[in-house]
């Protein structure tokens, strides 16, 4: 009886008795969810354009952030370091297209997937060789990212909103909006959507697959950089971040691998779901639920929508 009370009654009593904490939990989940959505967006862009599940997206987040901080530590001014890092991500995208993707055209998807595994370990080694394994402090202040917090006295308590989190949410939303407009209304964006629909059809109307791949991997690299800056400002820039980036997997399962809105909605559901779960129900199972709860949420959704919330329904005629 006690256990039923703890599961079905007590958490809701807590929500009612301390609504400020509920709002705080929702906010933390929202911010976490936005960051998950950003990571998932990188996966979605590449999957749409090339049908590759880019396992290296997590390490791209770390590599981009490390490059930025590493350059700054070597005396390069912050905004110049930012510009150079964007350049590095372009060179990386170009190199990936030339060295990894182009030779593997027409190979089974699993081969391309395995190639991104190789890319992951290459970037880990490269990052450690160039910048070392020590964690680094993100140069948030030098990039004029806000510091401090806003305390809202509401609901009989205090809800604290970190300014960096507000900035992260705004930047992520602006970025997602800009990317949506880019894909919808620009020539390159339309070409990318054409490639996503059918490689062969796109080629037949003169779209350069190679060019599109470079652009998409570059955009995914920029998304990775922004994610790295935001997440690095919340903790530190270290190789442990690539593990956090894998939290995008349940987001993708939930939102669908080909949907930008799916990445956003999926990110928010996972972010808010895992924080609420950990805070109200976590103590019942000894805590540390966030590492697996996200997958449980995704699996429950899969039972009802195997293609994800916004994914394309696959119908194959036999």
């Amino acid at each position: 009886m006690d256990i039923l009370y703890s599961i079905f009654v007590d958490p809701f009593m807590q929500m009612g008795s301390a609504p400020d904490l509920l709002v705080q939990t929702l906010w933390e989940g929202f911010v976490g969810g936005i960051l998950y959505a950003l990571i998932a967006l990188g996966f979605v862009l590449i999957f749409k354009a090339s049908g590759v599940f880019n396992f290296a997206q997590g390490i791209m987040v770390v590599f981009a952030a490390l490059t930025l901080v590493g350059l700054y530590e070597k005396g390069v001014p912050a905004f110049l370091a930012l510009a150079i890092t964007i350049g590095v991500m372009f060179v990386l995208a170009y190199a990936i297209e030339r060295v990894v993707l182009r030779p593997l055209v027409n190979q089974p998807d699993i081969i391309l997937f395995m190639a991104t595994f190789g890319l992951t370990y290459l970037l880990i080694g490269l990052g450690e060789a160039i910048f070392g394994g020590n964690p680094k402090v993100m140069i948030a202040e030098q990039l004029y990212l806000p510091k401090g917090a806003i305390d809202l006295k509401i609901l009989g308590g205090v809800v604290t909103l970190q300014k960096i989190d507000i900035a992260a949410a705004i930047i992520a939303l602006v970025m997602i909006g800009a990317l949506s407009l880019f894909f919808q209304y620009t020539r390159i964006g339309r070409a990318l959507r054409a490639v996503a629909d059918s490689h062969k059809a796109a080629l037949s109307v003169g779209i350069s697959l190679n060019q599109i791949w470079v652009i998409v991997w570059f955009i995914a690299g920029v998304v990775a950089l922004i994610t790295g800056i935001m997440w690095g400002a919340r903790s530190d820039v270290s190789f442990a971040l690539q593990v956090v980036a894998l939290k995008a997997l349940p987001v993708l399962i939930l939102g669908g691998f080909t949907s930008v809105p799916g990445a956003i909605v999926g990110g928010l559901i996972i972010g808010i779901g895992e924080k609420i779960g950990e805070f109200y129900w976590g103590p019942l199972v000894g805590g540390a639920t966030e590492s697996w709860l996200a997958y449980c949420i995704a699996l429950v959704f899969l039972m009802f929508r195997p293609q994800g919330l916004f994914g394309e329904r696959i119908i194959e005629r036999i």
Partner: peptide, 21 residues
């Protein structure tokens, strides 16, 4: 007790909400 899974070493905000409570 506030356990942190290795995968969430840099993602502790849920745990710190519990500490705040």
């Amino acid at each position: 007790l506030y356990p942190i899974a290795a995968a969430d070493m840099q993602n502790q905000s849920g745990t710190w909400l519990a500490i705040r409570r």
